[in-house]
Design a protein around this nucleic acid. Structure first.
Length: 573
RNA sequence: GCGGGUGUAGUUCAAUGGUAGAACGAAAGCUUCCCAAGCUUUAGGCGAGGGUUCGAUUCCCUUCACCCGCUCCA
């Protein structure tokens, strides 16, 4: 399938528009048009119906360890900033990055380490030292190797090399040279090797990790992957808050509220649909990587002993949901992450992926991730931001207290609230494990659009084959369920058709059209993906029946006018 | 963020240093008893800003957006 054709159809028929298009558009933001909003809404409602509202908590679903409850939630997009500090997003999303102009590589600032290096026989010649950097695991060996190479020295001449302390890349240097001065390399005679700070900066003497010449690194720049905002009209930097980068945290911080207000018992899940925001570095591929996007997330809380089984249940349950709605076939796969690919807190993660047409052959894009998150999230919000220690166990990340380097404090303090769960029957207290099926509503919508796009050949009224573009949506997610046409615009046919249209429209989205040739009207509905077209013709006047045309097979059959609503209903629900 | 490419009507495309055409689509009407091409009429465009020039949609610069490759992707 040609992605360009789909993109142009989405624009032409009103599925998707570029955001703020009349002002030239905004990178990474997309709007849903009249058809698109119906499609996306149907997808979200199918999810909510199947996962939450329609869920039967009285019996054990196929593949589930036991019966469970599901409930919903709708949280704010802006939450207390501490939420993101404790969850780890703040540290991870506010990285300082440096770019190398020579190699086009980008490095995380905190991953680059280096030493000032000097060649002893050049002391006094006025040649400046070089700050040799690397991102290697073995900083010392790598820095020495690269320094020798830079100074054109052989390994056995290593004693010619004078290396300073291992340190981070100096930052904020061109603005003020104080940092540089304090860290300046002093040569063997105790004199600063660099003195002219006014026309020089340390960056000019930094050898980037993979560069062969100095001075190719940009200054460290802050990369804010979270959208920052200000709370309060007089807001200053202290009032900074963030638009959520995921909906999940709102569920975790409301865990106790839900428990206290609903009588739900573990195992149970809390579902939420809502917008999230990430300042993606490279938004691309239509709506696939957008900066504002909508998530459909479940946090499922269960006993630690059963979490593995629940993970497997949700993994398979979510896969089935997509296939039931028409994302069947080879383009949809489930991929379990290898152990080394897992997040530091996860015991298991599976992605449901779709072979989007804009991806290279054999590559898949993520629609949903089902993650076993253990007790990481609830513990974080109790204790504070967690990191893995040397033994591989999670513990609160500690940093030195300012001014008292030998005292430690939590880097980001948790709520201090007790989020443990007490089993009313066994009286057991535990922190529930969490299974997180996290789905992208926009990505699902895009996948359904791609999957639906289909071209076939159908004969026109002269019997010549014509290309027909048809969006073969599953009837449940189709933006328009049925269209009603009078075959011709006379003999009272429009009046009958309009009556049928009104009855349909009371139940679901329907479309009425009496203009032009009926074949043209059929084709228009094919492009919109309308599964059924109802046509009022001459025979209607004698026996009170109409034809129903199937979008995919083009078959037509007659039903009584009074039975049209029921006939369509049972096919599109 | 870097490199390359592209921006003309709703869509797909033309042409041009002297203010733009087509096809399809859309709208109105006629015609039409079942799958877009029967007729008539109508509306609609040079991504934005600056420069060169008597004059720029065309040449130059900047910017924005899209596509491809790299980078990134908790």
């Amino acid at each position: 399938m040609d992605m360009d054709k789909l993109v142009s159809l989405c624009k032409r028929r009103g599925f998707l528009f570029q955001s703020s298009e009349i002002y030239g558009g905004l990178n990474g933001f997309w709007d849903y048009g009249p058809l698109g909003v119906e499609l996306k809404r149907n997808i979200k409602e199918a999810w909510w119906q199947d996962m939450v509202r329609g869920h039967d908590e009285l019996s054990t679903p196929a593949g589930a360890p036991e019966a469970y409850e599901m409930t919903g939630l709708d949280c704010t997009i802006i939450m207390h900033p501490q939420v993101w500090k404790v969850s780890g997003h703040y540290d991870l999303f506010c990285d300082m990055m440096v770019d190398c102009k020579a190699t086009k590589k980008r490095y995380r600032y905190d991953q680059i380490k280096g030493r000032w290096a000097f060649r002893k026989d050049q002391v006094g010649t006025g040649k400046p030292p070089v700050f040799v950097t690397t991102v290697a695991e073995e900083f010392d060996a790598d820095i020495e190797r690269r320094a020798l190479k830079y100074f054109n020295l052989r390994s056995k001449q290593a004693d010619q090399l004078d290396l300073g302390e291992l340190m981070s890349l100096p930052q904020g240097i061109s603005a003020q040279h104080g940092y540089f001065e304090s860290e300046t390399y002093y040569d063997a005679e105790g004199k600063p090797a660099l003195t002219d700070y006014s026309s020089d900066t340390p960056l000019n003497h930094v050898l980037a990790p993979e560069a062969n010449e100095v001075g190719t690194l940009t200054e460290p720049r802050e990369f804010n992957l979270m959208f920052k905002t200000i709370v309060g009209a007089m807001g200053t930097e202290e009032d900074a808050a963030f638009l959520r980068p995921e909906t999940a945290q709102g569920i975790f911080v409301n865990f106790k509220n839900v428990l206290d207000s609903t009588r739900v018992k573990v195992p149970f899940g809390i579902a939420q649909i809502g917008k999230s925001f990430r300042n993606e570095i490279t938004p691309r591929n239509f709506t696939f990587r957008s900066r504002e996007f909508e998530q459909m997330e479940i946090e499922f809380f269960c006993h630690p002993n059963a979490s593995r089984k629940w993970y497997e249940y949700w993994r398979d349950r979510r896969m089935k949901w997509y296939t039931d709605l028409g994302l069947a076939g080879e383009r949809l796969i489930m991929r379990e992450h290898a152990a080394d690919e897992l997040s530091h807190y996860s015991v298991g993660t599976a992605d449901i992926e779709y072979a989007f047409p804009f991806l290279p052959e054999g590559e898949y894009g993520e629609l949903e991730g089902i993650a076993h998150r253990g007790d990481f999230d609830l513990r974080s919000h109790m204790e504070g931001k967690l990191v893995k220690n040397a033994e591989g166990c999670l513990e609160v990340e500690m940093v030195p207290v300012e001014g008292k380097p030998d005292k430690l404090r939590p880097k980001h303090r948790g709520s201090g609230r007790d989020l443990t769960y007490r089993d009313e029957v066994t009286n057991e207290k535990f922190v529930p494990h969490v299974i997180e099926p996290s789905s992208g509503a926009d990505r699902a919508t895009l996948a359904f659009l791609c999957e639906a796009y289909y071209e076939d050949e159908q004969p026109d009224e002269k019997g010549e084959m014509q290309t027909r573009v048809v969006m073969r949506f599953h009837p449940r997610i189709a933006p328009i369920k049925a269209a009603v046409f009078p075959l011709v615009k006379k003999d009272g046919l429009p009046e009958i058709a309009q009556e049928i249209y009104r009855k349909l429209k009371a139940k679901f989205s329907a479309f009425y059209d009496e203009k032009g040739a009926v074949g043209r009207r059929y084709r228009r509905q094919d492009e919109a993906g309308t599964p059924y077209c109802i046509t009022v013709d001459g025979q209607t006047l004698t026996d009170n029946t109409v034809t129903i045309r199937d979008r995919d097979t083009l078959e037509q059959w007659r039903v009584k006018v009074d039975e049209v609503v029921e006939e369509i209903s049972k096919r599109v629900m």
